[in-house]
Amino acid sequence: MNKLERASYTAIFPENLKKYKNLTAFSKSIEKIFKTYIVDKIETLALFYNLEVQEDNVLDEIAWFFNIDKYRVDLDREIKIKLIKSAYWVHSKKGTKTAVISQLKNLNYEIKIEEWFEYGGRPFTFRLTTVNESKEKDWLKNVLSLIEEYKNVRSILEAFYLLKEKKYEYHVLGYKEVFISRKRVNAGEDIDVKKNLFLGAYKQIRKEIVK
């Protein structure tokens, strides 16, 4: 119980007004309504300081106000709140690698970004790598759309690698093989890299079993 729920509002009346019974009765009526319908809602009026207690439709309206890119009403509450909290900062950093990484993390996409000079690629290109393919429908489309929205204009996505690990155990033959494949997703139509198939690679580990 907070102070507004315990307080007597007529107690703060100036002495010259306390003598009017009709004004005192009116004040008590207003006090009852205020304590019944308003006091417990006051915390939610501080929208940005109390995002965790806001209803979903309120969060959606705040997101619309901030014009948050790629925001959807079907997102989890946790993700909605993270997007709203970082909205101003991300907009101020838009066009930088930092902004892209921040939005990917806010949406729980674990994706590594490497720029061309980090892996010896073509100038002003970059690539994405992930080992955690999302179960979300159209997640790849959403990621590529987000990248396009937040990257700077001169940077071009060269490739998106999906790394998957496959394990096979052959107890009869006496060794264990681990295959790691790398999948390359086509970069887009704005560069001359037109490969729809991707590079394949694997790592093989053999271990003899001594009986």
Rank of each mutant, 00 (worst) to 15 (best):
A7G: 07
A7V: 12
A7H: 05
S8Q: 11
S8I: 11
Y9I: 06
Y9S: 04
T10E: 10
T10L: 04
A11H: 12
I12N: 15
F13A: 13
P14N: 06
P14D: 04
N16D: 08
K18V: 02
Y20G: 07
Y20K: 12
N22V: 08
N22A: 06
L23T: 07
K28R: 15
I30G: 10
I30C: 12
K32R: 14
K32F: 11
F34Y: 13
F34H: 08
K35Y: 05
K35E: 03
Y37E: 10
Y37A: 06
I38G: 04
I38V: 15
D40G: 07
K41P: 06
K41I: 00
K41F: 02
I42P: 07
T44I: 02
T44Q: 09
L45Y: 09
L45R: 02
L45E: 01
A46I: 08
F48H: 10
F48Q: 09
Y49C: 10
Y49Q: 13
Y49W: 06
N50L: 01
L51A: 02
L51I: 01
E52K: 07
V53F: 06
Q54F: 00
E55M: 04
D60K: 01
E61Y: 04
I62T: 03
I62G: 04
A63R: 04
A63P: 07
W64H: 14
W64L: 14
F65T: 14
N67Q: 15
I68T: 09
I68Q: 08
D69V: 09
K70Y: 10
Y71E: 09
Y71D: 10
Y71T: 10
V73K: 14
D74P: 02
D74Q: 01
D74L: 00
D74R: 00
L75F: 02
L75T: 02
R77F: 00
E78Y: 08
K80G: 02
K80N: 01
